[in-house]
Amino acid sequence: MAITTREGEHAYATKPAKILAMKDLTEDTRYFKFKFLDESIVEENYKPGQFAIMSLPGVGEAVFSISSPPTRTDFIEFGVRKVGSFTEALFKLKVGDIVHLRGPYGDGFNMESLGGRDLIIVSGGLGAIPLRSVLLYVEDRREEFNQVFFLNGARSPADMLYRADIIAMAQRGIIESHLSVDKDDTGEWPYHEGVVTTLFPKITDRVVSEKTTAIICGPPIMYKYVIQELLKLKIPKDQILMTLERRMKCGQGHCGHCAIGGRYTCLEGPVFTYYDVQHIKELI
């Protein structure tokens, strides 16, 4: 782990990082790009799906999924939706301002073990933010994977994240993308309309169940229905990976907020398999 404790530092030590760039992704979601002031910190030993804790003195700490891949080490990127007091303060910052980071925490998607497999990446709403890390990892190491399907559901065309990037990746043949919106209020949406599960018929005939791994991230309500579709495709239970959200304060199994039964999402999660979901009560 790279940002984490180095010699002489304690487990809660934060590292200052400078905002290099910001961009509005949707009305309330913004892209942030950070660089550590200490240039010797190089982010490469993390997995897509892991998260970091951002600290703003006077505001507090909050947990965010890392949305850049470990294959791109010069900077670290996040996607943030403005929903609470912390993100409100974060949105007021300007390029060049400092935030304090610690992490990466949790257990992410073990991409190296997925070499040679087909991937079905299912994203809903903000789920695209952690999955962007997976997509960019695939882009950088395309030769390691076989077919890659990307299914994305958004509320409306304006709510879809990374639209241009995903279409560009699809045009270059890196992924096969299928996009949908719940409701097309603009009348100009060229793709599918309906919830994300209605995209599955488009890929069903090409899925080879025994060599496919599914990666899911989205709002809590989405998991149940997506898992049903994946089980219909006969994807093995331990090859359905999903990243879950819980309240976290410490990131290291001390504060107790993310406990699900005896598991701490911050240590054993946020990535779980469907097999875990079946055996750990209350997971989804």
């Binding site: 003195p57 507090g60 909050a62 609470g84 912390f86 809590p220 819980r246 309240r247 504060c255 907020h257």
Partner: peptide, 24 residues
Amino acid sequence: GFRERILDSCTLPYYSMVAGDHDF
């Protein structure tokens, strides 16, 4: 200012609530 830790309890309301007001 300062940052502080306060004893919390899982029996209190909002213990598992995340941003966006989703309460697990």
